[in-house]
Amino acid sequence: MQFRDLQAQYQKYKAEIDSSIQNVLAEANFIEGKEVKELEEQLADYVGVKHCITCANGTEALSLVLMSWGVNFGDAVFVPDFTFFATGEVVSFSGATPVFVDVCHDTFNIDPLKLEKAIQKTLAEGKLTPKAIIPVDLFGLPANYPEIEKIAKKYNLLILEDGAQGFGGNINGKRACSFGTAATTSFFPAKPLGCYGDGGAIFTDDDSLAETLKSLKVHGRGKDKYDNVRIGVNSRLDTIQAAILKVKLKAFIQHELIDVNRIYDYYQQRLKGVVETPIIPDGYYSSFAQYTIKLKNREVRDGLQKYLKQNGIQTIVYYVKPMHKQMAFTNLQLDDDEFPVSNELSEKALSLPMHPYLKEIEIDKICHSIRHYLSHV
């Protein structure tokens, strides 16, 4: 049983996807073809922002925004400790310093109370200048933007929403990738909206920022490709991926987002009281990039994962190492005791198969296997 069944999705939309790819091949406009612009317009309309700028991948989407903001040496950027490496990596790549913040036990997202304490501590130390916050919409659930925005306003900080896993989620109807000054997402194949390779996008209502991003992603281009007004990078979404995403976006809006939330309900009905199941706060809606449970400890978690694998059920541990334990950040000399929740989640969290094409009979098998294993430990 696959963790995310991309083959089932392809078989359902094979004719449309194949036709879209063939159209690009026939037109032979593989870079910045019309499908890219059409996709950007559709994405911006769905999210509810003025501008969508596509790029090569989700990591570069984050980097491009930090470049546009001039984030550099001496700046502090606040990042959740329990997330994928890229969110902290882009900060270091820009020359700035990532300041990791522990997360909430229930939502897995950055803890606003600890965020403010981290900002105050950074200001008191006086070595770095607080510049931005990068909240992550982990596992499909938007971060607590109502509180984060209050904090950002209080300390005059920029917000860059990392919606790589959150595309499709919302808070009281306001969609993920529309929070903060800018937001990004990833089209990595396993994401809620994924292509058949790498891809990413940036969302913003800021006209000036949008123009700078369009320039930066194509070698700092000015009026044409041989007019370079700034130092940029080469970070474009290719036309074939855009054509694929146009088909997938339609499916995502029509039924996939609804289907993963229906599957969430199935899991909740069968696993509540058996394990710690995901909590969705009132007013929040998740796109369920992952369905993540918590077990008693690492031994039980790892044992369950091994047992499920023996029964043909694929699971993944997100994340074995929190950010503060990554070797690449050892120079920051971080105190392990400052991240109790991240440390706990790395020991207890296990993500189960989750995708729009998961069948109820498969969910029954997964949940029966979990109950059976836990009844014997």
Rank of each mutant, 00 (worst) to 15 (best):
F78T: 03
L160E: 09
I110V: 15
A86Y: 08
F93K: 14
D137V: 10
E116F: 03
G74Y: 05
P98M: 14
P98E: 14
F100T: 13
S178P: 04
K121W: 10
S94L: 12
K154Q: 12
I159H: 09
F85E: 11
I171F: 02
A190C: 09
I148M: 04
D137T: 09
Y155G: 08
F84H: 09
A76W: 01
F167C: 02
G163Q: 05
F78M: 05
A143K: 04
V90Q: 10
F84R: 13
K117V: 10
F73W: 01
G126M: 12
A76T: 02
I110M: 09
K131N: 12
E147W: 01
I110S: 05
N170E: 13
F93N: 13
Y155I: 00
G126N: 15
F78E: 00
T97C: 12
L158W: 07
A96C: 12
V103H: 01
L157D: 07
F73P: 00
F93C: 08
H105T: 04
N156G: 04
A132N: 15
S178W: 02
F139H: 13
N144A: 00
K121G: 10
P98T: 10
D111Y: 00
K153H: 08
N170V: 00
E161Q: 13
F73V: 06
V136K: 06
E125I: 13
A132R: 12
K191I: 02
K174F: 01
E125W: 08
F82W: 04
P146K: 08
P146S: 08
Q120W: 10
T97A: 08
G200T: 07
F187N: 02
G163C: 11
